[in-house]
Simulated assay, not measured.
Amino acid sequence: MKFIVSEQHKSQEKRKIIFFSALIAIFIAGFILMFISSSELSNKVIAAVGTFFLAKYLLHAYQNIKNNDNSYPVVEILEAQEKIDISHKGAVVSMPLSDIESLRIQSIKGNVKSLLLTTKSFSNLRFEGYENLAEMAELLKKYTPAGKIKNATWYHR
């Protein structure tokens, strides 16, 4: 069964990036104002360093917004072959389902919000925002060792 990230999750993440980018732009404007209006060297250095680091974040945020639709991997659970295929930008990584060590199902108000999968080969995999996440959880439960499935009501990000 193939799982893709929902359009709702993609747009929600894009809104978060735009909001924080606007907030960072306000801080950069404040640093520039501080740089121009201050006569002390220490304030100018702080403003220049702050502007430099925040501008790097803005560049990264722009790239995230531009590549938003292509930045989420597609997960395919192949029960017949007993493996998980994770494909992203043309590359496919396969993992046997027997490598699953534990599964944590994180839910809010009965709705599955994310899955944390601990494996032998990749250590931790997190699945969030995928369509049919509850179905993915049920499939992964079949291959998780007994006693290693935990339902977490506290949602960890």
Rank of each mutant, 00 (worst) to 15 (best):
52 F>K: 13
148 K>Y: 00
110 G>Y: 08
7 E>I: 05
40 E>Y: 10
77 I>A: 06
54 L>D: 06
119 T>S: 05
94 S>V: 13
109 K>W: 15
122 F>H: 12
56 K>G: 03
50 G>I: 05
41 L>M: 11
157 R>L: 11
95 M>P: 02
138 E>R: 11
95 M>D: 02
91 A>R: 13
23 L>F: 06
140 L>P: 00
146 A>I: 09
16 K>I: 09
78 L>V: 15
96 P>N: 09
34 M>K: 10
94 S>N: 15
74 V>E: 09
45 V>P: 02
32 I>L: 04
117 L>C: 01
150 K>C: 12
28 I>K: 05
26 I>Q: 04
74 V>H: 14
16 K>A: 07
74 V>K: 15
81 Q>V: 14
127 F>H: 03
68 N>F: 01
115 L>P: 00
138 E>H: 14
41 L>W: 13
16 K>C: 08
112 V>F: 06
1 M>H: 07
148 K>F: 00
71 S>E: 02
79 E>Q: 12
10 K>I: 04
93 V>H: 11
50 G>T: 10
148 K>W: 00
61 A>M: 06
84 I>M: 07
129 G>A: 07
121 S>L: 09
125 L>F: 03
97 L>Y: 01
108 I>C: 13
62 Y>E: 10
64 N>Y: 00
40 E>N: 12
109 K>N: 14
141 K>G: 03
58 L>T: 07
150 K>W: 01
100 I>A: 00
